[in-house]
């Protein structure tokens, strides 16, 4: 058995099969890994560029929102003070 397996022709045949397999593997890496990597890079570049475009908008949106809220709170506090000052005035009059 060993004798058969270890004949030169058999080893050469196995080596050629291995060579073929290695080539297939190399192609698979190109096709299934390196190409997708390029695709991913393109996508991430695009996302990065898009984000640079909207980041300013997002910051402005958030700042405006918070500023509006602060304004509303200040306004409601002032309104309540007025209403409750009426209350105090009424109490004083009484």
């Amino acid at each position: 058995m060993d004798q058969t397996n270890n004949t030169a022709s058999q080893i050469i045949q196995d080596a050629e099969e291995l060579l073929e397999e290695i080539k297939e593997g190399s192609e698979a890496i190109d096709r299934e890994i390196l190409q997708p990597i390029a695709e991913i890079n393109a996508l991430t570049d695009q996302v990065e560029a898009d984000y640079d475009g909207v980041e300013g908008e997002l910051i402005d949106l958030n700042d405006d929102y918070l500023a509006e809220n602060d304004k509303d709170v200040a306004q409601i506090v002032a309104n309540m003070d007025i209403i409750l000052a009426e209350d105090e005035e009424t109490a004083d009059e009484e």
């Binding site: 299934e32 890994i33 997708p36 990597i37 695709e39 991913i40 996508l43 991430t44 695009q46 996302v47 898009d50």
Partner: peptide
């Protein structure tokens, strides 16, 4: 959406 797609491709790779 793009990031999700990139993640999907990455997962397959």
């Amino acid at each position: 959406e793009k990031l999700i797609k990139a993640n999907e491709v990455l997962r397959k790779a």
